[in-house]
Amino acid sequence: MVVKNKARLVAQGYTQEEGIDYDEVFAPIARIEAIRLFLAYASFMGFIVYQMDVKSSFLYENGFRRGTIDKTLFIKKDKGDILLVQVKQKDDGIFISQDKYVADILKKFDFSSVKTASTPIETNKALLKDEEAEDVDVRLYRSMIGSLMYLTASRPDIMFTICAYVRFQVTPKVSHLHAVKRIFRYLKGQPKLGLWYLRDLPFDLEAFSDSDYARASLDKKSTTGGCQFLGKRLISWQCKKQIIVANSTTKAEYVATANCYGQVLWIQNQMLDYGFNFMNTKIHIDNESTICIVKNLVFHSKTKHIEIRHHFIRDSYEKRLIQVIKIHTDHNVADLLTKAFDVSRFNFLIASIGLLNL
């Protein structure tokens, strides 16, 4: 509430002056995607990143504090002094990781000496409510999920799994807790994975879109997956269950592509501030029918059941803001964000998106 934030300012003894901060009642907070975008640009240009501390905790209880040690940038959460993200600056690029935070949560939940798992989630095992099973400690389950959610700042390899199990926070069962523990066992085996932004790479914007049709066992909704790169540097990714029940694979893929383009549009606008005008951005899709719908207006009569808000991608294609490219499913890296895989396919995908051990 605006009134609440104004009251918080007054309680701290601050006064507002018209023309200066009369309308500014919220602290400016950078999206994590914006930080990764800046780091990708810095790696391309060969910049050494410095920073200054800005205190904004009088507006938000959980602000962010940052400090620099040598060439490593630390992003911390003020309350509890939790280390979130490490950014190591090297001569040939920038490496983003959270291995110190992984070590902290493994110790917190007593997973420091457990057997490791090769993947964060089992394949071909449906996620069910399991209502007849025994209940578990809700606070423990939510605490584990909440701790894992911070890891999505640099670990897209666990994004799909966390999005799947976060849906069972109301009444978690033993089976759900065991599944979440598997994520920790996977992290135990891969604590140092991070995003590598190599300096000597091109700097073009491209995206990948995918969906998993009707895989949600509870309501048969599809899962949207998307990821965006600046010259092979992964800067943004999405995993989200669609709010509608798609009645065809094509519709599920089309909705996912529109969602992916929404993020591409945001990146295009952000890059204008850096002096880059990324027109005709490539969006890679593995569904031929979706590409036909985007390109060919004749298909409009067959897509009346799709909500109008998803059709803005057609207008953007006509304006040459994007181009849609057919890609084989085996090479669609957005697949990582839509479903579970065996260890060989999983390792191939995380290597393809730039997750490495350094």
Rank of each mutant, 00 (worst) to 15 (best):
K188G: 06
L9I: 02
A252G: 11
K88C: 06
A126K: 09
K4W: 08
K241Q: 02
F64I: 00
V255T: 11
K251D: 05
S236V: 08
S56R: 11
K79V: 07
T116Y: 14
D335K: 01
A258Q: 07
K88N: 15
F58Y: 04
H305E: 04
D157E: 12
A133Y: 08
V174C: 06
K71I: 07
L321V: 14
P172T: 02
A11H: 12
L128K: 10
R320W: 07
L177G: 01
Y101Q: 03
D335Q: 11
E24R: 12
A340G: 10
I105W: 04
F168N: 04
K302S: 13
K232N: 14
E18M: 08
F58H: 08
D219R: 15
D110F: 02
I48K: 09
V3M: 12
C239R: 01
R167N: 14
E18V: 11
L177H: 05
V114Y: 10
Q263M: 06
I291Y: 00
I96Q: 00
A30W: 02
L9H: 04
E134W: 14
N247L: 11
I162M: 03
Y141P: 05
W196H: 07
A179E: 07
I350Y: 01
K302A: 12
D330P: 06
T338A: 01
S113Q: 05
S118H: 13
G80I: 01
S248L: 10
G80S: 00
I285F: 02
L73V: 03
V333A: 02
E131Q: 04
H328W: 12
K115E: 13
T281F: 08
T249Y: 00
T119K: 02
Y150K: 03
S56M: 11
S143G: 13
T257H: 12
P191G: 04
I235D: 00
Y254W: 09
I82D: 06
G80Y: 04
K108P: 09
I306Y: 06
D286M: 09
N5G: 06
T257L: 14
N277I: 09
F168I: 07
F26S: 11
M1Q: 07
R185S: 06
T249C: 10
K220I: 14
Y22F: 05
Y165Q: 01
V343P: 03
K192Q: 13
V138I: 15
L355I: 00
M159E: 05
I69S: 08
F278Y: 04
K295W: 13
F44G: 00
A103E: 00
Y197H: 10
S236Y: 06
I105T: 02
D212F: 03
R345V: 13
R142G: 12
S143F: 00
L140N: 08
D204Y: 15
Q242E: 03
V85H: 01
K79Q: 02
L358C: 15
D342W: 05
G93H: 04
D212G: 03
K240V: 07
P120F: 04
E288T: 12
T15K: 09
L355W: 00
E134I: 15
G226K: 05
K319P: 04
D23I: 12
Y317H: 10
I35P: 01
